[in-house]
């Protein structure tokens, strides 16, 4: 374990995590207006209609696979009857399928971004940076799966990478676990970590806005203008001052709280 290992496998992930969380908080507090999916569907729909669902659904499957493989300890899966053999088959073939769908979708979207003038024109520098890291992460991940799991004998990342990530989460980083990991996996982890670091400053910010609660709210939303004195919440420091002990609703006799 040398200093470089500590830098790559301890300092860098923690710095990325800090950037990820603090970045999101800052953006949520100060840049709600810029928080959007940045859809370009109104510009072009023929490529997007195929590329976007393929990429996003593939990505959802990939994320689910990573949660199962990285965050859930082997013993827990054993307990519910998923032994190493079943896991390996599932992870390899379902994972390869998900990777294939994601990669096809991503290629369609990248071609669209380059070839469709309208879409190319609205591509920002940050988009390009993000695409580089996203593409690298997906490419190395796919390479690792194909090289070791599909063609090779299978690499047991659940004995190295997975416990390493959990050691980071539990704040007891174990650098030694990452020492013997094959290069493809290491590069996948490094590019992914970098992607997390820049995440909140890119269009990926929309991932945190998955509107699940739409399923549970009433259809029509009503809002009172009194509460906000305008449509939006006042910015920090600009809230109305209310004298201590004063009823906040006192100025609205017709709207007095009962």
């Amino acid at each position: 374990m040398n200093n470089l290992d500590v830098l790559i496998w301890v300092a860098f992930p923690y710095a990325a995590a800090a950037s990820f969380f603090i970045g999101h908080i800052i953006r949520y507090r100060y840049d709600q207006y810029g928080w959007t999916s940045r859809s370009s569907q109104t510009y072009e729909n023929k490529w997007l209609r195929w590329g976007s669902p393929l990429f996003h659904y593939g990505m959802l499957a990939v994320i689910a696979g990573h949660i199962i493989g990285l965050l859930i300890p082997r013993e827990w899966l054993d307990f519910i009857g998923i032994d190493d053999h079943i896991y390996h088959l599932g992870a390899t073939w379902l994972g390869t399928a998900a990777a294939a769908i994601t990669v096809i979708g991503m290629i369609l979207l990248l071609i669209r971004r380059g070839a469709v003038k309208r879409v190319f024109k609205v591509t920002t520098t940050m988009d390009v940076v993000m695409y580089v890291f996203l593409f690298a992460t997906i490419a190395f991940g796919t390479l690792a799966v194909v090289q070791f799991q599909v063609l090779g004998a299978g690499y047991d990342y659940r004995g190295s990478v997975s416990p390493w990530i959990r050691s980071l989460i539990l704040m007891q980083p174990n650098v030694a676990l990452m020492a013997g990991v094959p290069l493809a996996f290491q590069l996948h982890v490094i590019t992914a970590t970098a992607l997390f670091a820049i995440w909140p400053f890119t269009r990926l910010i929309h991932v945190l806005s998955v509107p699940i609660w739409y399923l549970f709210r009433p259809y029509v939303v009503y809002r009172s203008r009194d509460k906000h004195l305008g449509a939006r919440k006042p910015r920090p420091g600009w809230e109305r001052s209310v004298r201590p002990g004063q009823n906040e609703w006192a100025e609205y006799p017709h709207k007095e709280k009962v």
Binding site: T36, S37, S39, V220, V221, Y222, D226, A231, R232
Partner: peptide
């Protein structure tokens, strides 16, 4: 998007819109 309780005007909260279209 919401309908104002007071006068029924339908508005988009520009801060809360995430561009789902």
């Amino acid at each position: 998007m919401y309908k104002r309780e007071e006068d029924g005007i339908v508005l988009v909260d520009q801060d809360a819109c995430r561009g789902w279209r």
